[in-house]
C-alpha cells in the first residue's frame, strides 16, 4: 500500500481540511437526490419519464465510470463499453442459466468483471495515450467478436432471448416497473456516491497526480502501474453496474452492448457534459438521451441534427456544458469581487 500512503501524504493538503465535512455533504446530497427521484412516481403517471430515468441510470453509471479513467487519470479508453456489455451478459446469463437470487447474480457479475478487467487492464495500462486507446478498442472488438462467434452460449447476434427472469427478493420485484425504477435510482445514487468517494479520496488525488505528471508521481514512490490498474478495475465495475441496469430494462442482452459504438457514446457523453467536474458525465447523459429521444421523434435524419449539436460543443463551447457553466460562474464571481 505504499503508493496509497505516498499519495495520502501528498494529498493531505487538499483533502484534510473539511474532508469529513465534504463527505457528509456528499452523502446528504445523495440522500436528497434519491428521495426526490424515488418519490417521482407519486407525482407523475408518465411511464416514459420513469423509463428515461432508468436509462439515465444505466448510461450515467457507465459514463461517469469512464470519467474516472479519462478525466481523473488521463487514461483515454476507447473500449470501456466492453465492461458495459460484460455486465449485461454476465448478469443475464447467470439469471437465465443458474436461476440464483438477483443479489447473488449481481455480486457474481461484478466479481467476474473484476477478474476480466484485471487481466485486460494488466496488459493495457502499460501503454500510453493513444496506444492505450487503441489496445482497449482492440480488446473490445475481440470480446464483441467472441460474443458473436460463441452463439451456443451467448445467443450470437440475436442476443440473450426469452427475457431475463426476475424472481422477487426481499420484497423487491424487479418485474414491476416502479420497483425497477426505484432500484435503478438506488444503484445510480449509490454508484455515484461511491465514485465520488473514490475521486475525493487520497487515491483519487494520486490519480490526478498521475494524470498531470506520471514521471513525478513515480519519482515520489507511487506505483503508477498499480494505481492505474486499480482504477481501471474500479471503473469496469461501475460500467458493469450500468450494463446490468440496461439488461434489466430491456430484459435481455445484445451484442450491440459490447460494440465500440457504445464506448463512443460514453466518450461523447463525457465531452458533452464535461470531464473536469464530477457530475459532468451525468449532465452529458441527460443531455444526450434527451436530445436523442426528442430528435428521433421528429426526423429520421437525426444524424445531421446530432452532428451539428456536436460541432456546436466541440467548436463553439470547446468544452463540456458543465465545465463551461462552472468556468462561467467562476469568471463572474471574479469580476463581481473585482467590482
Amino acid at each position: 500500500m505504499t503508493e496509497l500512503e505516498a499519495g495520502r501524504a501528498r494529498a493531505l493538503v487538499p483533502v484534510s481540511s473539511g474532508a469529513a465535512l465534504q463527505r457528509y455533504r456528499d452523502v446528504l446530497i445523495a440522500v436528497i437526490a434519491f428521495a426526490v427521484l424515488a418519490s417521482l412516481p407519486l407525482f407523475t403517471g408518465s411511464k416514459a419519464l420513469l423509463d428515461f430515468v432508468i436509462r439515465c441510470s444505466a448510461y450515467g453509471l457507465f459514463a461517469t465510470s469512464l470519467n474516472l479513467l479519462v478525466g481523473y487519470t488521463g487514461l483515454t479508453s476507447f473500449g470501456h463499453g466492453m465492461f458495459f456489455g460484460l455486465g449485461a451478459y454476465g448478469f443475464g446469463l447467470i439469471m437465465q442459466k443458474l436461476g440464483v437470487p438477483i443479489p447473488v447474480a449481481f455480486v457474481a457479475t461484478l466479481a467476474i468483471t473484476a477478474v476480466i478487467a484485471a487481466i485486460i487492464g494488466a496488459i493495457c495500462v502499460r501503454l500510453k495515450e493513444i496506444y492505450f486507446a487503441f489496445v482497449t478498442l482492440a480488446f473490445q472488438m475481440l470480446i464483441h467478436s467472441t460474443i458473436l462467434s460463441w452463439a451456443s452460449f451467448t445467443g450470437g447476434d440475436q442476443g440473450l432471448r426469452g427475457g431475463i427472469p426476475r424472481p422477487t427478493f426481499l420484497g423487491i420485484n424487479l418485474a414491476n416497473h416502479i420497483h425497477l425504477y426505484v432500484a435503478s435510482c438506488a444503484l445510480l445514487i449509490l454508484g455515484l456516491l461511491a465514485m465520488r468517494q473514490i475521486a475525493q479520496s487520497p487515491f483519487g488525488y494520486t490519480l490526478r497526480m498521475i494524470r498531470d505528471n506520471a514521471a513525478r508521481a513515480s519519482f515520489l514512490g507511487i506505483d503508477v502501474w498499480r494505481a492505474k490498474l486499480t482504477v481501471f478495475v474500479l471503473a469496469a465495475l461501475f460500467a458493469a453496474m450500468g450494463g446490468m441496469v440496461m439488461a434489466l430494462f430491456v430484459s435481455g442482452a445484445y451484442p450491440e452492448f459490447a460494440y465500440w459504438t457504445i464506448s463512443g457514446e460514453a466518450i461523447f457523453i463525457n465531452m458533452l457534459g464535461g470531464v473536469s467536474t464530477f457530475l459532468g458525465p451525468m449532465v452529458g447523459t441527460v443531455l444526450l438521451l434527451l436530445l436523442n429521444d426528442t430528435v428521433t421523434r421528429f426526423t429520421e435524419y437525426h444524424g445531421i441534427v446530432l452532428g451539428v449539436v456536436i460541432l456546436f460543443f466541440a467548436l463553439g463551447l470547446r468544452k463540456g456544458l458543465l465545465d463551461f457553466v462552472a468556468e462561467w460562474f467562476a469568471r463572474r464571481r471574479k469580476t463581481g469581487e473585482g467590482r
Binding site: 430494462f249 430491456v250 445484445y254
Partner: peptide, 27 residues
Amino acid sequence: PQEAARVARELVNTDGCELLLDGEASS
C-alpha cells in the same frame, strides 16, 4: 435493440399507441 425497446415502450406509454407493428430485424 436498446433503442428498439425504448421506442416501442415510448410509442405505447407516451404516444398512446394501442397496437404495435414491429418492423425490426434480428436482435
